[in-house]
Simulated assay, not measured.
Amino acid sequence: MLNGRQTMKRFQSFFNSLVTIIALAGCASLAAAAPIDELVAAARKEGVIEFLAPSTFGPQGAQSLAEAFNRKYNLNIRLNYSPSSNMVGDVTKVLTHAAAGAPPEWDLMVVTDAHHASLWVRKLHQPFDYRKLGVGPQSIQYDNGTVVAANQFVLPAYNKNILPPKDVPKSWEDLLDPKWKGGKLGMSTATHHPARLAAGAWGEKKTTEFVKSLAKQELTLGTLGALYTRLQVGEILVLVTLTDSYINTAKKSGAPIVHAEGIEPVISPAYNAGVPKRAPHPNVGHLFAAFLITPEAQEIWEKYNGQTSAFIPGTRAYKYVQGKKVLHMTQDQAEMVDRLTREYGKILGF
């Protein structure tokens, strides 16, 4: 049996160990908190963010994000929203500015992973260690250059009030049927969509043959926004690829535009948030990029643009991909997708 002195010694030893553990835990918490505290302080000094995001997100969505961001970090950042309806053109602007030695127009660009690939291969991101802010590795791409904010889902689309159910495509290959020839199919400038098939399930040879055959269908060409409008009025019958951003817009407005569900693989471009090199306000940009994967930001993005991240368990996107063949582009496929996006653009007539 232990005497009173031995009991006291053991208690003192246990107490000292407990104090040490608590102290170490406190230090760890402080260490984890320090990077975000420093970034918040730096962001506060910058005071503004030039924010490029999809046009489908809208000014109200951008304002809601700004309010939630300021509330979360106790800031008063002014957000200037630039709607993007032509991401190819927006990336080209950044490339042109960089070539001229001028800073980019935006502090944070939310465009697809394929468009960010064009910046990454040219080393035009301003990297940041997002893991220090609690961002998981699956949500970080391009050597710490971007954060995956949300996932799109891309399939052929049609007007359900015009196209009979028997004519709805059941596979990607159905788009090569001669009945679609003569401008009945719309193809957008988003040629990175078929390029993803090449990098993923189909391989380059099969996909290139598919794109060449598609070009022989005498496609109606244009931006996604313009073709979405033409699909509504019946000027085209099927849009070869349409993002679910527009499907979400159709649901809100009551437009009869729907995806040809059941086709696989489902192409899933990611909306990546990245700070371009030499951005005027990089600290706000990095903090905002990390903010986009928080529950409050995911809720706002889903409300206004219809998407969430497929890499965050419990989100609508995460649930949607379960059991489906879905193509997520990886960093090691970026150069191939970037190259084929340009090649397929030429083949298709852009």
Rank of each mutant, 00 (worst) to 15 (best):
G4H: 13
Q6D: 06
F14V: 14
N16G: 14
I21M: 05
A23Y: 06
A25Y: 01
S29A: 10
A32M: 12
P35D: 06
I36A: 08
L39Y: 12
A42H: 01
A43H: 03
L52I: 06
A53L: 01
A53E: 02
F57K: 02
G58W: 02
A62M: 01
A66N: 13
A68E: 15
N70W: 01
L75C: 04
L75G: 05
N76A: 11
S85F: 05
G89Y: 07
V91Y: 03
K93A: 04
V94L: 11
V94D: 05
A99E: 13
P104D: 00
E105N: 08
E105A: 04
M109R: 05
T112E: 07
A117S: 13
S118W: 07
V121P: 03
K123P: 00
D129G: 11
R131C: 01
V135F: 06
S139F: 01
N144V: 03
Q152P: 00
V154R: 00
P156Y: 05
A157L: 09
L163R: 08
P165D: 10
D174Q: 08
K181S: 14
G183H: 04
K184E: 11
M187I: 04
S188A: 10
T189V: 02
A190N: 05
H193N: 11
P194L: 00
A198P: 07
G200N: 11
T207C: 04
E209F: 04
E209G: 12
F210P: 14
K212I: 12
S213R: 15
L214S: 09
A215T: 05
Q217K: 11
E218D: 14
L219H: 04
T220W: 02
L221W: 01
L221I: 10
V233I: 13
G234Q: 03
L237Q: 13
L237G: 04
V238Y: 08
D244L: 02
D244P: 02
S245W: 10
Y246C: 01
N248P: 00
T249E: 09
S253N: 13
V275T: 09
R278V: 00
R278I: 03
A279K: 02
N283W: 06
H286N: 01
A290D: 00
L292W: 02
I293C: 03
Q298L: 13
E299R: 15
W301F: 05
W301L: 14
Y304E: 05
S309H: 07
A310I: 12
F311Y: 15
P313T: 07
P313F: 02
G323I: 04
K324Q: 12
K324M: 12
L327D: 11
T330I: 03
Q333D: 14
E335R: 14
E335Q: 15
M336P: 00
R339T: 13
E343A: 09
Y344S: 09
G349M: 05
